[in-house]
């Protein structure tokens, strides 16, 4: 059974105010599942490779969000939004990510609006509709 806690087992030596090392990273089980999904069935992934990927994806999050945050600071806005993330991706060389992310964001906002409208009108269809919409979004995102 995989250790869901992450690559680091250093739990006991941390004080309350310090971020635990394992909390810096996404859970290794979730990362491992995503890795397996893209590979053929005969492929295997070593534990160390999953740990390397945990580090890489956490660095990716910091890299992108720092760029977006800096943009907001310069424009004297307090809230970082999805458009800033898309801009940051394009700026940092992930051009092929930025366009799918914009479309994903646009569809997400549509779903939110529809959901709010349905709530206001007190109809009963919203759960199914939203689930179906998000399912389509999920498929499209993976399809890159």
């Amino acid at each position: 059974m995989e250790d869901i806690g992450g690559s680091s087992s250093n739990d006991n030596n941390n004080n309350g105010g310090i971020i635990k090392e394992q909390d810096r990273l996404l859970p290794i089980a979730n990362v491992g599942r995503l890795m397996k999904r893209i590979l053929p069935q005969n492929a295997k992934i070593s534990k160390e490779a999953k740990e390397t990927m945990q580090e890489c994806v956490s660095e990716f999050i910091s890299f992108v969000t720092s760029e977006a945050s800096e943009k907001c600071r310069k424009e004297r806005r307090k809230t970082v939004n999805g458009d800033d993330i898309c801009w940051a991706l394009a700026t940092l060389g992930f051009d092929n990510y930025a366009e799918p992310m914009r479309r994903y964001l646009h569809r997400y906002r549509e779903v939110e609006v529809d959901h709010n409208k349905v709530n206001l009108q007190e109809k009963g269809n919203s759960p199914e509709e939203k689930d179906d919409e998000l399912f389509k979004l999920s498929n499209r995102g993976v399809g890159l």
């Binding site: 996404l26 990362v31 995503l34 890795m35 999904r37 893209i38 590979l39 992934i45 990927m53 890489c56 994806v57 990716f60 999050i61 992108v64 969000t65 970082v80 939004n81 999805g82 993330i85 898309c86 991706l89 992930f94 990510y97 799918p100 992310m101 994903y104 964001l105 997400y108 906002r109 995102g141 993976v142 890159l144």
Partner: peptide, 18 residues
């Protein structure tokens, strides 16, 4: 919307690198 957006971006990143 950012956690949702970064979540999807991370999925694509992990799978590309893998």
């Amino acid at each position: 919307e950012i956690p949702m957006l970064m979540s999807k971006a991370c999925e694509i990143f992990i799978q590309e690198l893998t």
